[in-house]
Design a protein around this nucleic acid. Structure first.
Lengths: 144, 144
DNA sequence: CTTCAATTGTTGAATATTCAATATTTTCAA
DNA sequence: TTGAAAATATTGAATATTCAACAATTGAAG
């Protein structure tokens, strides 16, 4: 009598993919009001500390690999949301900065994103949300 | 005095994306031993109940949209891992089945995936893992 | 019945992503 | 100081994904 294999829906990798897909879909929907993909919002948000960030740093922070980021930044430069400056201390590097136009857009996007977080808090609960965040952070930690 | 906006790393959407990326990367690495992408493993696993599944059903189950699934199934049919049968009860539908070769491959992939789950259990802990799964399931539920 | 809308799956063109190769600059050892 | 190796970012070709249009079948209202 063979033990049946666990269905795909019980695997952690699958649950993560499913939850990520759903939450991302919802966020995408909100941000589409401003015609901006989620990744661009992440980029703007990281850059909105005003410091210059190298492409490598950015790629890590926004979960994109380098060539994809380069091409997305090209578009954002065309849209004058961000700009490149060569790092004076290490001329291999390029430092990315957010423009004034980028800052304005980022604020609008932030409030759309906050809307979503609030919506999650309502339907999912305060306690579950913070507990889930805690567990995710610790999973990410333990994977390095 | 303006309140600083919460950094991207505190958003649930971001934490999910990050955790998903990392766990998926690890799984991908294991499955690459058999040269199979994660999505194909999911497809094989869903089909391994032996029943016929329509493309629509499958697309939902494996988190791919229809055209992407069609093209991936095309490849898997070429590799004789799965095959198509027209649904006799509704001739718009196509029923997908796993082949014997597919079953053999699926078993190997399952054990690679189980390896990973065990690795996670070790470094992350039994309790955290099951609690995280529970919370993810409930988040997915509350999003429908 | 007949026709029109809805469902299901595929296709082709447009778009996006990835891999490997490249160019540039820096680091560091000899 | 020089030359080789490492780090950083970009490019172009190959690959994959997505969007919109299509074809086929079914459902359902008149």
């Amino acid at each position: 009598m063979a033990k049946p294999n666990s269905p795909i829906t019980e695997h952690l990798a699958y649950l993560l993919a499913q939850a990520n897909r759903e939450i991302n879909r919802q966020l995408e929907l909100r941000l589409s009001k401003e015609g901006v993909p989620v990744e661009q919002w992440r980029i703007l948000k990281v850059l909105s500390d005003g410091d210059g960030h190298s492409m490598g740093e950015l790629a890590d922070a926004v979960l994109l690999n380098h060539p994809t980021l380069t091409k997305m930044i090209d578009r954002m430069v065309s849209d004058t949301l961000v700009y490149r400056v060569q790092d004076p201390n290490d001329r291999r590097k390029v430092l990315m900065f957010i423009s004034d136009r980028g800052k304005v857009l980022c604020k609008k996007l932030n409030s759309l994103a906050v809307d979503q977080e609030e919506h999650i808090l309502e339907s999912y609960g305060d306690k579950s949300t913070s507990e889930l965040k805690r567990l995710l952070e610790s999973l990410i930690d333990s994977s390095n």
